[in-house]
């Protein structure tokens, strides 16, 4: 089914343009002069682009970008540290009750974030963990951990048994086998899990707006939200912040896309 016809390409470009119009609009508005924002007919193209929106965004939102970066990286670390050994236990060491655990992880993914947020709030109020970076890291990691365990388990179950046996014959214990054989082979899974753990933590709004709403450290999603509440006239600055907040997602995906694609299919033997 290889069609080498241009009409389909043209049609595809049209669909794509239609789909990506809001993204274009975000960039367009971010470059618009403040005075032109309230014109009755909006400008379709940034004919007279300005960076004032970006200047305002950077000067006000730099700390929250830093906070989101720290929370995202912390979330990646926590997720991998918990999910990788669990995947090993489930897929290679055949943990007893593994099926039940898998089932629990599926159910865990169905729980609405707002419910988790209330539970965490009730706990954090007592422990004084509200508005703290570690508290937010833990809460955000609950989005990624079940996914991480399931992904590691699926990948590790496909690692050829011969490799594990060979490692055992060489005298390596379970821990050495895990760190020297299984983890290096699972590099692509680690990249995939890290990528999504970071993106989800970076994009999270519900936990941020409930557990970290009035602290010194406000993540970028909340920065934008407070921006909308405070100055509704400066939409170029809001959209500029939105563009900046979208960059890590775009960069990470462009850079890491091949790892994601290679992740599940590439086997150890081919490496």
């Amino acid at each position: 089914m290889r069609t080498r016809s241009w009409p389909k390409t043209v049609l595809g470009v049209v669909f794509c343009a239609f789909m990506l119009f809001p993204v274009y609009w975000m960039v367009n508005v971010s470059l618009t002069q403040t005075g032109d924002l309230r014109r009755s007919t909006p400008q379709w193209f940034p004919t007279d682009p300005t960076l004032e929106g970006y200047r305002a965004a950077i000067s006000q939102q730099l700390p929250s970008l830093g906070t989101s970066l720290v929370v995202g990286l912390g979330c990646v670390a926590l997720t991998v540290v918990i999910a990788a050994p669990a995947g090993y236990a489930l897929a290679i060491l055949h943990l007893r009750g593994g099926k039940a655990l898998n089932f629990l992880l599926l159910v865990a993914q169905m729980i609405p974030a707002v419910v988790m947020a209330m539970g965490f709030y009730a706990i954090y109020v007592r422990l004084g963990l509200l508005n703290s970076v570690p508290g937010l890291i833990v809460a955000d990691s609950t989005i990624a951990v079940p996914f991480g365990v399931l992904l590691y388990t699926t990948f590790m179950a496909g690692i050829p048994r011969e490799l594990i046996h060979a490692s055992r014959i060489d005298g390596a214990g379970p821990w050495r086998t895990f760190t020297k054989v299984v983890l290096p082979i699972s590099r692509n899974s680690t990249l995939t899990v890290s990528l999504f753990a970071f993106l989800w933590a970076w994009s999270d709004f519900i936990f941020a707006s409930t557990l970290a709403r009035s602290g010194e450290f406000v993540p970028i999603t909340l920065g934008i939200y407070q921006y909308i509440g405070n100055n509704t006239t400066q939409w170029n600055a809001i959209m500029a912040t939105a563009v900046v907040a979208s960059l890590p997602a775009a960069i990470l995906l462009v850079v890491a896309q091949r790892y994601v694609a290679a992740g599940v299919t590439a086997g150890a033997v081919k490496d």
Partner: peptide
């Protein structure tokens, strides 16, 4: 499903709305 010119690139571009933070 029909593999036309640029179909891979265009399909990848369709993922953009999914990757953006929801607040954005």
């Amino acid at each position: 499903r029909a593999n036309f010119r640029l179909s891979g690139v265009l399909r990848a571009l369709f993922l953009v709305p999914w990757l953006l933070p929801l607040i954005v």
